[in-house]
């Protein structure tokens, strides 16, 4: 604990620090049957409710219900979306999605934490959700493991349906640049 933190070149500019509180443009997420099946399949669900609309309706849902964690799929546009992460990406906007702005500072990203809170968990195929991502916190510190600086940011993405919030997705992301020879 007594060891000094090695000096490092900060990568966070004042300009980036002022982005705390800034919100992204809205992003449209479509909740679809194929999207729900793909998510449920990837997460390993075998419950028919995520795959068969008849079963979903028999169990009182409007359509296939979205498994926890699934909030639709960002509507992809090759002119306006991030090719790697599928969310909208406006190069002139400071905050775009849960991966920005740290994505523009460091090449390597690691997930730090994810906190999903439902306000209305009744999300089903056919729903269209609108999200906005707000940068809640961004800071930098020296990482011993990485032998260099890392940036830690937290974003809160609020998903709404018909203007009513349905969920808040709070994501912490760590960005770093690998040091040669480590």
């Amino acid at each position: 604990m007594a060891t000094d933190t090695p000096a490092f070149e900060p990568s966070l500019t004042d300009e980036i620090l002022t982005l705390v509180g800034v919100e992204s443009a809205p992003c449209t997420h479509e909740v679809t049957r194929p999207g729900i099946r793909a998510f449920a399949r990837a997460a390993g669900y075998r419950d028919r409710v995520y795959y068969h609309a008849d079963e979903a309706k028999r169990r009182g849902y409007r359509d296939l219900p979205a498994p926890p964690g699934h909030l639709g799929f960002p509507a992809y546009d090759p002119e306006q979306s991030d090719y790697l992460l599928s969310w909208p990406l406006d190069p002139n906007a400071p905050v775009n999605h849960p991966f920005s702005p740290v994505q523009s500072i460091h090449t390597e990203l690691l997930a730090g934490s994810l906190d999903l809170e439902y306000i209305d968990p009744d999300i089903c195929a056919g729903d269209v959700l609108i999200s906005r991502t707000k940068l809640e916190d961004i800071r930098e510190r020296y990482s011993k493991a990485l032998n260099g600086p890392m940036v830690i940011q937290t974003t809160a993405t609020t998903f709404k349906r018909d203007d009513a919030p349905v969920a808040v997705y709070r994501f912490t992301l760590i960005g770093y640049t690998p040091v040669e020879g480590t």
Binding site: G35, A42, A43, H70, F73, Y83, L85
Partner: peptide
């Protein structure tokens, strides 16, 4: 399964 996940959420990192 990881590629299924990438496909399902659109995270292609």
């Amino acid at each position: 399964q990881l590629v299924h996940w990438a496909a399902a959420v659109g995270d292609f990192y």
